[in-house]
């Protein structure tokens, strides 16, 4: 017997539906469709990176709600270095380093000091908000931002070309990182150990693996990725810094991660979905296509997360030991 119920519940079914929808829309409004999709991809980049940061921390057992602050501080430092040196590569590296350092701070608080991880993340958020606000001076400007690199003939493919193959470097890098992280997490020794630490740290400890090191390393790595997200905002998307410019992206990334059930590929899909919602919101706000207040579309990702978390549509299972500091006997 063919199980329609199963088909409706499957992810592929939804992907297929969305694919049909995109084709239909491209057929009728080619320009708008390409614009919305390209913007969705750009909007999804910081979310996907944030989710990668969050999930690698949580897979090793450390909750990270400080991503908002990590991104903000990295965006700021990346911006400053860009202003001082005029070198965008240095600036991106500075952003990544800043992110890694905030990761180190979070790891120090939650692994060594065993502070409640939510509070640790909140410290980073408030600190980043205050520091960037305090040291920010109006009127600084950079010499340009990262420019799109078109991938030659690939760019000429209809629909896909302009959306996928004409993007600035960090967007490409994000796609690559998603695959790398998937490989790292599920096909390497490091990934096996990381996931084990997040599930049952004591068991891992009895096997002679250093729980503290694994957690530190993953949280710092995650911080570096969040730093890249911050660099994206100032150096690739906007080209300048504004106060509080992350504007909740760190928290949406958290939602994206849960939506993606703590997997890189799933998170990327969720990031695209959320990015799509955001670009649609902008389109509606300015295009005046449909008259739904844009705030309602704006709150959609948040509402969806609550619904998913409450288990109304499929339950996601988080790593078992997250939130709990590990103590040796």
């Amino acid at each position: 017997m063919f199980q329609w119920k199963k088909v409706f519940k499957s992810v592929w079914f939804f992907i297929f539906l969305i694919f049909l929808l995109i084709l239909w829309s491209y057929f009728h409004y080619p320009v708008v469709t390409v614009a919305v999709l390209a913007s969705a991809l750009r909007q999804s980049t910081p979310l996907a990176l944030g989710a990668l940061c969050g999930l690698i921390g949580e897979r090793s057992g450390v909750i990270n709600i400080g991503m908002e602050g990590q991104m903000l501080l990295s965006a700021f430092l990346g911006f400053l270095v860009s202003v001082w040196t005029g070198n965008l590569l240095f600036a991106v590296l500075a952003g990544v380093m800043t992110g890694a350092l905030t990761g180190l701070l979070l790891a120090f608080m939650s692994v060594t000091l065993r502070i409640d991880q939510i509070i640790g993340g909140t410290v980073i958020n408030i600190l980043a908000f205050g520091l960037t606000g305090y040291f920010y001076q109006v009127g600084l400007s950079t010499k340009g931002k990262l420019q799109p690199i078109s991938l030659g003939p690939l760019q000429d493919i209809p629909l896909l070309g302009p959306v996928l193959f004409n993007n600035p470097p960090i967007t490409y890098l994000t796609l690559l990182l998603v695959l790398v992280m998937h490989y790292l997490l599920f096909y390497t020794r490091w990934g096996l150990r990381t996931r084990a630490v997040g599930e049952h740290p004591r068991a891992v400890d009895t096997l002679g693996i250093n729980v503290f090191f694994m957690r530190y390393a993953n949280v710092v790595l995650g911080g570096a990725i969040a730093g890249l997200a911050g660099a994206f905002l100032t150096l690739e998307a906007v080209g300048s810094f504004e106060r509080g410019m992350t504007n909740g992206r760190g928290f949406v990334a958290l939602a994206v991660m849960i939506f993606g059930k703590w997997t890189p590929i799933g998170s990327w899909g969720a990031a695209l979905l959320f990015g799509f919602a955001i670009s649609l919101q902008t389109q509606l706000q300015f295009g005046g296509l449909i008259t739904i207040p844009h705030q309602f579309i704006g709150m959609l990702p948040y509402l969806l997360t609550v619904i998913v978390l409450a288990g109304f549509v499929g339950r996601a299972r988080p790593p078992a030991s997250i939130g709990m500091p590990y103590t040796k006997e």
Partner: peptide, 21 residues
């Protein structure tokens, strides 16, 4: 109290910490 990762497979649990790569 067994030191096993409930969501891992038997083989994964056995090799964890001394993985063949």
């Amino acid at each position: 109290h067994f030191m096993l990762i409930p969501v891992f497979t038997v083989a994964e649990n056995i090799m964890l910490g001394d993985e063949v790569t």
